[in-house]
Design a protein around this nucleic acid. Structure first.
Length: 720
DNA sequence: GAATGCGAAGGCAGG
DNA sequence: CTTCGCATTC
């Protein structure tokens, strides 16, 4: 048998990983070391070399995009379609399993997936029902807490009974929230995973069935798995222990989302005799870029150890640009882009990376002025837009009348004379009877307990939904969508609205019909097309903008850049407080994650890397003095070519991040993160410095009394 | 009940 | 600087 097409273009380490005998195995794959190649070739080798049926292989990824790409590449390698081979995201796979075994999992057949926005609304609803003040119980925090618990495999009933008041309340909200979900058949993202894990844990028959089916399990981006995902994988792999995990501890950047790098270390402990292979040869970047990235990441402790190298050229020095302010930073970046383009390079060879999405605006303005097409990743995705969510809510309600989230969203959208008062009565009824809003509304109408006007409006609405439900039955999916948009009055409502925004909304709605037309129901789904599409919309939020194939400069956050590569990369906003982010500075663990983020950013660059920072940055509508990021001082100076804006006030200070670098402008001795002592307030940390000289104000976070704004000239702060 | 205007609060990363 | 809830007015 000729298997040369599988092994020929692999290096030794890659070949060793691909050809390894079945059994537990970790591939520690550095950035640009051919991770996806190893995964795809491994699958090809299992199929051709070991004659494993593709149906016995399960490949798990984190994004739909990665799953699609893997499938395509394996198909190309093997030259045959993979058909029903299981490849997908954790969430997508769990969704399928739960659909197939809704009964066993204790879910209604028609359960629907809610995204984080729906979840947020729902939690606020619960808080209101429980008479809790949002000011004291921030819904965002509760949402975060609930999700974290679920990601660790804890349910409300697992929380201790005897915590303090805060924990007690948290527990109650959690309980109420889950009750609400159960009542309306809602499943959030974390629940999707937890439910499936519990199903496997508690149902031996089912577990055995899946273990028998998936004899080989492969995971991509293993460092991003959370606690239950890892348990899930272990359960599936079972006694056979054929778990092939690919990951990179240095690229673990989703700790805030529950990801556990420790899983990489636990793997070796849990699977005695497991094999570990390092891929350290990089095929992406110049040696200069790699040396710099290696130097930065070396400042982290708790690494599994890995150093990238390349046979490639040294390449150009990394440019480090110190700008006087954020506008100037953007000006420089755009100027640099113009030169690069003038040299004959393509626009899509360029990426501008930043820590937080808010930073994109300045770059957008300057690019627009220069007439350079660009594309911003992130931000509002297609299926997250208000008008699309409205349209989907109609579809959701039609396919599941008990969907309260959908009901609330559209009962008065477009306005049909049902106000808060009426809605509140329906809610009260629903709460009292523990039934869905739909049922509650019906009850109220038949009991004639609503005012005449409201009753007419509500029964009109109920009739509308019921009529639509019967009208669209049996139609093609896109005809259903079309009918829903027309009958609901949504399209008309947005058409009547004036302004540019309304126009894009109408366009988006039309795009939604296109999306339904192109949507192909997944093979093994036994759902009706409409429900299938709704689930698809929740699981895959879609691109930030409708696909424009014009060649564009790419703007994106560091997080969304993971897995991508560009000849020219701008790594911007390297300032203390921004990158590393303020909320990460005090905790060593979080700081290391920021450093990994920096490493991810640097290793995106193939030929040229430009790093920049600004001395003054406008943030949240305030001008702030900033200090160069500590990460800059971690790059060997010999690899850098420094350029600076002539307007800079002071000598470069990034070499000593802790020293007061702005003696000319910032008040003496006060630097961000510096420890100070105030006569009355005691010890504290400088959080923000604003203004200069006599007018300088500082925000100090005091240990005893919290944050206070002080005028530096009068505060008489001593450095401590 | 709907439209408009005001003040307070929140502000990171992503599926 | 924005968004969102709330109160006021129509």
């Amino acid at each position: 048998m000729d298997v040369s097409h599988i092994f020929d273009d692999l290096n030794d380490a890659q070949r060793e990983a691909v050809a390894a005998p079945p059994g537990p195995m970790i591939v520690l794959a550095g950035a640009g070391s051919g991770k996806t190649r190893v995964l795809t070739h491994r699958i090809a080798w299992l199929v051709e070399g070991y004659q494993i049926s593709p149906l016995s292989i399960l490949a798990v990824t984190f994004t739909n995009k990665a799953a699609r790409e893997m499938r395509n590449r394996v198909e190309r390698l093997l030259g045959v379609p993979l058909g029903a081979m299981m490849m997908g995201t954790f969430h997508g796979l769990c969704h399928r399993i739960l659909r197939a075994h809704a009964d066993e999992a204790g879910l209604p057949k028609t359960f629907e997936i809610i995204d984080s926005d729906d979840q947020y609304r729902l939690i606020r609803r619960v808080l209101k029902d429980m008479d809790l003040d949002e000011a004291y119980w921030p819904p965002k925090q509760l949402q975060w807490a609930i999700n974290s618990h679920k990601e660790e495999g804890r349910r409300a009933s697992d929380l201790p009974e005897n915590g303090d008041f805060q924990h007690q309340t948290m527990k109650r909200v959690f309980e109420q929230y889950d009750k609400y979900c159960a009542r309306s058949g809602l499943v959030d993202f974390a629940e999707l995973l937890l439910r499936t894990l519990e199903l496997f844990k508690n149902n031996e028959v089912l577990r055995a069935q899946y273990q028998a089916r998936y004899q080989y399990v492969l995971v991509d981006e293993f460092q991003d798995t959370n606690s239950i995902q890892y348990q899930w994988l272990k359960l599936l792999a079972g006694e056979r222990r054929n778990l092939f995990a690919v990951g990179d501890d240095d690229q673990s950047i989703y700790g805030w989302r529950g990801a556990r790098v420790e899983n990489l270390l636990n793997f070796e402990r849990d699977y005695a005799g497991s094999k570990l292979i390092r891929l350290e040869q990089n095929y992406r970047s110049t040696s200069t870029i790699l040396k710099a990235a290696n130097a930065v990441i070396a400042h982290n402790s708790d690494r599994m150890g890995k150093e990238l190298w390349t046979e490639g050229d040294e390449g150009e020095a990394i440019v480090l640009y110190g700008a006087s302010n954020d506008l100037e930073e953007a000006r420089y970046v755009v100027e640099h882009i113009e030169n690069w383009l003038a040299a004959g390079n393509a626009r899509d060879s360029i990426a501008i990376l930043y820590r937080s999405n808010a930073q994109s605006r300045v770059f957008e303005e300057k690019l627009m002025q220069a007439g350079i097409p660009y594309r911003v990743y992130g931000g509002l995705r297609f299926f997250e837009r208000a008008e699309i969510k409205d349209a989907l809510a109609y579809m959701r309600l039609i396919s599941n009348l008990n969907s309260d989230a959908a009901f609330e969203r559209i009962i008065n959208q477009p306005t049909r004379g049902i106000g808060n008062k009426t809605l509140e009565m329906i809610r009260a009824q629903a709460r009292a009877q523990e039934q869905s809003l739909w049922l509650a509304a019906r009850t109220l109408i038949s009991a004639q307990s609503l005012p005449a006007r409201a009753a007419t409006a509500v029964s009109r609405f109920l009739d509308l939904i019921a009529t639509m439900q019967s009208e669209i039955e049996g139609l093609e999916l896109h005809e259903q969508a079309d009918a829903v948009l027309a009958r609901s009055g949504l399209l008309e409502h947005y058409k009547k609205e004036k302004g540019e925004r309304a126009e894009t909304r109408v366009e988006n709605l039309e795009e939604l019909i296109n999306a339904t037309r192109n949507y192909e129901t997944e093979d093994e789904d036994d759902l009706d097309p409409l429900s299938s599409f709704i689930a698809h919309a929740a699981l895959e939020a879609g691109e930030g903008q409708a696909a424009e194939w014009e060649e564009c400069v790419q703007l994106m956050s560091l997080h969304s850049a993971k897995g991508l590569e560009f000849p020219l990369v701008f790594l911007t906003g390297l300032e203390e407080g921004l990158f590393p982010h303020q909320r990460s500075i005090d905790e060593p663990g979080k700081l290391e994650e920021e450093r990994r983020l920096c490493y991810v950013g640097m290793t995106r660059a193939m030929q040229k890397l430009v790093i920049s920072y600004a001395e003054i940055r406008r943030l949240h509508g305030r001008e702030m003095y900033t200090q160069p990021s500590r990460f800059l001082a971690e790059i060997p100076p010999s690899l850098l070519h420094e350029e600076r804006s002539y307007r800079l006030h002071s000598a470069p200070s990034y070499r000593q991040p802790s020293a007061a670098g702005h003696s000319g402008s910032a008040p003496d001795g006060l630097s961000l993160g510096g420890r100070v002592k105030h006569q009355k307030f005691g010890l504290g940390t400088v959080v923000t410095v604003e203004g200069a000289g006599e007018h300088a104000r500082v925000l100090v976070n005091f240990e005893e009394v919290g944050s206070k704004w002080l005028v530096a000239a009068f505060a008489n702060l001593q450095s401590a």
